[in-house]
């Protein structure tokens, strides 16, 4: 068999598995968010549908069914092609990022080594940034095509916001890249078997988290869909499954950035001090990040647009540059 064909078949199987896991994971993430925020707000939260140990285990399915049966609405003056395409682009780019994230140490079964990432690309970190920069398209096109002023304002906000924060986001990762000397996520994870990168790059870690929140439009940077100002921003005119797709993209992005943060800064599937590496460590770390994001959502108010831009360009960017510079100087002094 053609080796390339074999690679493609293997990648196809892995992709399908990852996509299925992500889509169910997204559904239960919404349940988790509702539960966490409810507890923060002294409420009970969903506990009726398919109740298991006081948790509404079937709530996401009920939500999905409800969402599917909503009227699928296309505004009269919308650009129909792009209006339909935009949610797909949003979800597509969100899923693409998972192609390079290593989930588990390689396994050898019957002499065939399986790598637990869909593709071991030697420029994986750059690939993630590239996919991140493409994810703007879903929001921008969705906001523009709906032909609604709120949507357009949301799209404009998101373009400016994501373009600005991408710069700091990239720079915050440069420190790690310099320390580890590779762009491959697989190698970055393997290098962290004993000491995690966050020890060398604490500032880079914080900058990454802040920028990543801004990249995926979560509170306190949720300006493109600011409910109290822009109704729902770029999603205002969307309904039914198309709305659900945007929602899905948002939550998958949340999974993605917590996976990247875990992989790049917290050792990915590596346990602390090399204890029992495996996918469970990655999941635990991701859940911690996701909980923090939900916690932030439950407590913080939103920035204003101009404050957000000023914060990005005047605080985060200089900090990220300084971090890069100091890392470089230290590395040169150490003679690496």
């Amino acid at each position: 068999m053609d080796p390339l064909a074999l690679v493609i078949i293997e990648a196809l199987i892995k992709s399908i598995v990852v996509i299925i896991v992500l889509l169910t994971g997204f559904a239960y993430l919404t349940l988790m968010e509702r539960m966490v925020v409810a507890r923060i707000q002294v409420r009970v939260g969903p506990n009726r549908v398919g109740r298991v140990f006081g948790i509404a285990a079937l709530q996401p399915i009920a939500d999905a069914i409800k969402m599917i049966f909503k009227e699928d609405f296309i505004p009269a003056n919308a650009d129909k092609l792009i209006y339909v395409l935009a949610p797909g682009i949003a979800v597509g780019t969100a899923l693409l990022a998972w192609a390079v994230i290593p989930l588990n140490p390689p396994l050898t079964i019957f002499g065939y080594t399986i790598n637990f990432e869909i593709a071991n690309v030697n420029v994986a970190v750059l690939y993630l940034l590239a996919i991140g920069s493409l994810s703007i398209y879903g929001i921008v096109l969705g906001g523009w095509s709906a032909n609604n002023k709120y949507s357009l304002l949301g799209a404009l906000r998101s373009t400016a916001q994501m373009v600005s924060y991408e710069v700091s986001l990239g720079l915050s990762l440069v420190g790690v890249l310099m320390v580890s000397g590779t762009l491959s996520l697989t190698q970055i994870v393997q290098q962290q078997s004993m000491i995690w990168n966050v020890v060398w790059q604490p500032l880079g870690f914080v900058i990454y988290l802040v920028c990543a929140l801004a990249e995926i439009n979560r509170v306190p940077f949720d300006l493109p869909e600011a409910e109290t100002e822009l109704v729902a921003g770029y999603q205002t005119e969307y309904s039914s499954l198309k709305f659900a797709l945007f929602y899905m993209a948002e939550y998958i992005n949340m999974l993605t950035i917590s996976a990247i943060a875990s992989t790049v800064f917290l050792g990915g599937y590596q346990g602390p001090f090399g204890i029992l590496p495996g996918v469970h460590w990655l999941l635990i770390k991701m859940l911690i990040f996701i909980f923090i994001f939900m916690w932030i959502r439950g407590t913080l108010p939103r920035f204003r647009y101009d404050q957000l831009m000023r914060f990005g360009w005047q605080v985060l960017l200089p900090l990220a540059l300084a971090n890069t510079f100091v890392t470089a100087v230290v590395l040169v002094l150490l003679g690496k």
């Binding site: 925020v37 923060i40 707000q41 002294v42 409420r43 509170v219 306190p220 949720d222 600011a226 409910e227 109290t228 100002e229 959502r297 439950g298 407590t299 913080l300 108010p301 939103r302």
Partner: peptide, 10 residues
């Protein structure tokens, strides 16, 4: 201000 209902519910 964009806080997600928490202060309000308190």
């Amino acid at each position: 201000l964009g806080a997600f209902y928490t202060p309000l519910l308190y």
